[in-house]
Design a protein around this nucleic acid. Structure first.
Lengths: 332, 332
DNA sequence: CTGAAAGCGCTTACAG
DNA sequence: CTGAAAGCGCTTACAG
């Protein structure tokens, strides 16, 4: 089936192909009757404009790449969908790119090896270092999601990870928890989402007058359910733990399964909390308390930033979604 | 920052830009020394080829769109990632497109209004009708995921939905279940994934000599956790139900929550099973039995089909992942 | 092995 | 309001 081009349409409508272009782009300069003739020809021939030609000429694709590490975490799927919705309002498209958390692929996007296919990059960094980002020469606008990587002046958008962590710990303390563990500290020592949540945890413990105990901290940069399961087993070997702050919901889901297998009751003898508020945590037993980022706000801010309407750092509101997993401990 | 083009590279290397093109495409015709000079110029100038130019010239993007209804279902994220991995081996890219389950957007892709951005379409149909697909004139190769929509000869790739449903029901019967409900029958009456799973359910009941009871069937084409929760409540109002076959895992997760809220014990007085084998069902309490499609096989078949190396219908192997939710009933 | 020309399908000034 | 020309950045034959 031969593809029909703008020339065939012009010929059938008896106009120049420039006029067809004007009609397709809804420019007001076309005589209504001419426009009608053109539209009819378009209809009859089933013409659809070739966007590649337009993109080449305009030097823009009106597509923005969202680079995420892994779609096994449903948070990223929902994030992508929220962004897609917001981008559409502005006449842009979101392209979901999976980095697999590998340095190679992350670099690929950072350094423009994607070949101008995107007008901007919304980047959820995983493996790449701050230096690599700083060395960047590719002019594609970039915004980072999550914590600022130290020493770069790249714009970034995130909730306040320290504050939200403090909120969680205060909530646990108010519920009577005293031996609160942390699962998901950064294992590389950089500034990351995990490290900031860990900072908030330590600050809140201090404020509450609770001792910090390194035995109650498990470090990992792999945040899947199985990691939560394995590390919670480890944490719960220490006696007396009555709560675990998990650096994301997937870890909390895994920790919940571990608690169950160890015969620990949630929430009566163990509280569990996390971040992201993925759909799943409303349906676990018990439901898991989670920090919910304002996803629509995040999407708007990321787009504003990547489209050059906003610079620097943006802090997104968050909300503590309290569920049964952190209900007050039953005091003896 | 001005973008550097192929001409600047050619100039700096002292060759014609055609030679640069030859080097970039790893064509063997270039003198090693010339190639080295070119590569050095590329490096020094930070040149990255503009893929839009190439795509326009070649009439191909080497990108395949995966059109899915909604990324709130984690199955589609994992499917996308599997496809992406498989496509990369073949030098192709996957573009995840979200239809929102709306006819408009589905039509958009089916009828080529995407503007030649994709060399092929892997389509998980949700709202679109068989007629709309049959009326298609756009020449972009198309493969459907899931059940064949009746009366079209478009290639499709799916597990055997009838057989897998029979497998589930037999498993339940062997576990001693006798009043088995079905959640997720097609509410529109067409041929769909839901309708085929429902057919398998009815066939298996008949084979097992169990009566079919319409009161035990809940129809819905919305397959999220909340739908499962609501409809399971409804089904469980009928006394004696000892198992529910849910048309996907999300429905089963919702049904599990409903059972819990109604004080029903899973699996001792109610068994629950589903399809898709999403990660989540290994961590619910109890774990949910699910039909696992062979995702890598599905990805390969979908690519073979859309790239024209395979025609017609492909049936993908599936496996029954037995978990605690369908453990044999304790007989009195 | 390298060079000069043409063309992919559009849009962008510029005339008329 | 419409037309003829040029050009976006590449690759594809075709000569040499």
């Amino acid at each position: 089936m031969k593809r029909v081009g703008i020339k065939e349409v012009a010929e059938r409508a008896g106009v120049s192909w420039k006029t067809v272009s004007n009609v397709m782009n809804n420019r007001p300069v076309v005589h209504p009757e001419t426009r009608a003739r053109v539209l009819q020809a378009v209809e009859e021939l089933g013409y659809t404009p070739n966007l590649i030609g337009r993109q080449l000429r305009q030097g823009s694709t009106r597509a923005i790449a969202l680079v995420v590490p892994d779609l096994h975490n449903p948070y990223f799927g929902v994030l992508a969908q929220t962004l897609e919705h917001a981008a559409k309002q502005r006449g842009y498209t979101i392209s979901i790119e999976i980095s697999g958390g590998t340095v190679d692929i992350e670099q690929h996007y950072l350094h423009g090896w994607h070949g101008r296919l995107f007008d901007g990059l919304i980047f959820s960094p995983s493996a790449v270092t701050a230096e690599a980002i700083a060395k960047r020469t590719d002019p594609t606008p970039l915004v980072l999601l999550g914590e600022r990587i130290i020493s770069t002046d790249v714009p970034h958008v995130a909730i306040d990870n320290v504050a939200s962590s403090v909120d969680l710990v205060r909530h646990l303390v108010e519920g009577g928890r005293r031996r609160i563990a942390f699962l998901g500290a950064d294992s590389t020592g950089g500034i990351s989402t995990g490290s900031q949540r860990f900072e908030g945890y330590k600050a809140a413990l201090r404020f509450a007058g609770l001792p910090y105990d390194a035995a109650l901290v498990a470090a990992t940069n792999s945040w899947f359910r199985q990691d939560g399961y394995d590390l919670a087993q480890q944490i719960l070997a220490t006696p007396g733990v009555d709560a675990i702050v998990c650096a994301n919901d997937l870890l909390a889901v895994g920790a919940l399964a571990a608690a169950r297998d160890l015969g620990r009751q949630v929430p009566s003898d163990l509280a569990l909390v996390g971040w992201d508020n993925i759909d799943e945590v409303s349906y676990t037993s018990p439901g898991l308390t989670s920090v919910a980022p304002d996803l629509p706000a995040l999407a708007e801010a990321a787009l504003d930033s990547v489209l050059g309407e906003l610079a620097g750092e943006v802090v997104i509101p968050h909300r503590l979604m309290e569920r049964e997993s952190s209900a007050p401990a039953v005091r003896a």
